[in-house]
Design a protein around this nucleic acid. Structure first.
Length: 288
DNA sequence: CCGCAGGCCTTAG
DNA sequence: CTAAGGCCTGCG
């Protein structure tokens, strides 16, 4: 990897492709939007940035060496060996093809609070509404950034809002979950420690929060705590797994256990590939 | 009008 | 412990 510093930002050159569109729009983060052909804008933490897809990497602006090292390098998972992952998954007849088809799709390592908030809101919800709620929450927090966008509320800010205010952001019956969990985090629930705990322990701890079940916990562990063996099983992944492993028995919990056993620390990426494959690539194939 | 959308919580058996 | 219901709300 090589970073070339320019006036407006940074040009990041990568040994293997990073497909921004698949990575940003596949439902692991909800604050990115398309800003033109191969261009995206979004907010992560206190940073509002634009990205441009390039054949050998991407361009990001604004970006300083400090924010690159402190945030973006990890966020875009730039140090992970995706080639090694692909060859490992090739040992499995089903996953090998999917990994190759999804080449360039990266996991994002997101700030843990905004990831938790996103997936609390995501429960039994659709992407359009999730995005709308996140924007409304950010606006309500009032922390303005460059370009007329807003940072998400902190746990303390969010916990101070009334349930009615939260419902006005479209949270529906999730409003009390969000409020209660925000207050727990503001009161010292150690989100940052989850990355240091073993996967099972971190998951149990997360699930003590209101509104956090198995699926939401696995999303948080995978997308912001570096627990790559987490395998969130939603309706789509369940559907995909049953299709590609017709002999697979049991409920969602059993499917998750099977995936961790089969793919090990690559389970989380396998889940991304399954999800993306079923929702996007297969559709494209049908249209062709 | 009805069922679902990237589930979770509560209650009943 | 497992299995149903109910739940905000917009869209097909």
């Amino acid at each position: 990897m090589e970073v070339r510093w320019e006036e407006a930002g940074a040009r990041v050159l990568l040994p293997a492709p990073l497909r921004l569109s698949d990575t940003l729009m596949c439902g692991q983060a909800f604050r990115w939007s398309v800003a033109g052909e191969g261009e995206f804008c979004g907010v992560v933490g206190q940073q509002a940035v634009r990205l441009r897809q390039e054949t050998d990497g991407f361009f990001i602006s604004p970006c300083t060496p400090e924010t690159f090292e402190g945030l973006w390098r990890g966020y875009f998972d730039l140090d992970f060996d995706y080639a090694a992952c692909e060859s490992a998954l090739c040992a499995d007849e089903v996953m090998g093809g999917m990994a190759a088809a999804c080449r360039g799709l990266h996991l994002l390592n997101q700030p843990v609070w905004e990831c938790l908030l996103s997936f609390l809101v995501s429960a039994n919800n659709n992407i359009g509404r999730i995005r709308g709620s996140m924007e409304a929450l950010a606006k309500m927090s009032g922390t303005a950034l460059e370009g007329g966008v807003y940072a998400l509320p902190t746990p303390a800010q969010l916990g101070a809002f009334s349930e009615a205010q939260l419902r006005a952001c479209g949270l529906g019956y999730r409003a009390p979950y969000v409020q209660e969990t925000a207050r727990a985090v503001a009161d010292g629930f150690a989100l940052g420690a989850l990355a240091e705990l073993p996967y099972e322990e971190a998951k149990r701890k997360l699930m003590t929060l209101k509104g956090v079940g198995e699926k939401v916990a696995d999303c948080v562990l995978l997308f912001s705590c570096g627990h790559r063996e987490a395998f969130p099983v939603d309706v789509w992944v369940e559907r995909a797994m049953r299709r590609v492993y017709p002999a697979l028995q049991g409920d969602r919990k059993a499917i998750g256990a099977f995936a961790r056993q089969t793919y090990g620390s690559y389970a989380g990426l396998a889940q991304q590939y399954l999800f993306h494959y079923l929702r996007n690539l297969e559709k494209e194939g049908q249209h062709a």
